[in-house]
């Protein structure tokens, strides 16, 4: 590790950039260490995850009449 101290702002930026990406780089190791020690950044990391999770769980079902109108519009009614 380079030993360079990670600043919070840098950690926050990095969290948003690298979520779901390869987390084995040297920089990532430094960020992980920072996250373990910094409550603010840990909260930040968690809040980005929750943000994504909220949108992932927000789904709508296609109404039956919308399905029927679609099949009629496409001339694919049975």
């Amino acid at each position: 590790m380079s030993g360079k101290k990670i600043e919070c702002k840098e950690a926050m930026n990095y969290v948003c950039q690298s979520l779901g990406e390869d987390l084995n780089s040297e920089k990532c190791a430094a960020i992980k260490t920072h996250l373990e020690e910094c409550v603010g950044c840990k909260n930040y990391f968690k809040s980005v995850e929750i943000t994504i999770d909220c949108y992932r769980k927000y789904n709508v079902e296609i109404p039956e009449d919308a399905h029927n109108r679609l099949m009629k519009f496409l001339d694919l009614e049975e």
């Binding site: 702002k9 603010g40 909260n43 809040s47 999770d53 769980k57």
Partner: peptide
């Protein structure tokens, strides 16, 4: 403006489960 350090609130008590 996206990464201001003051935005470090704890979301653990936010009732987000179940959208």
């Amino acid at each position: 403006g996206l990464f201001e350090e003051k935005y470090t609130a704890d979301w653990s008590s936010i009732p987000y489960k179940g959208a």
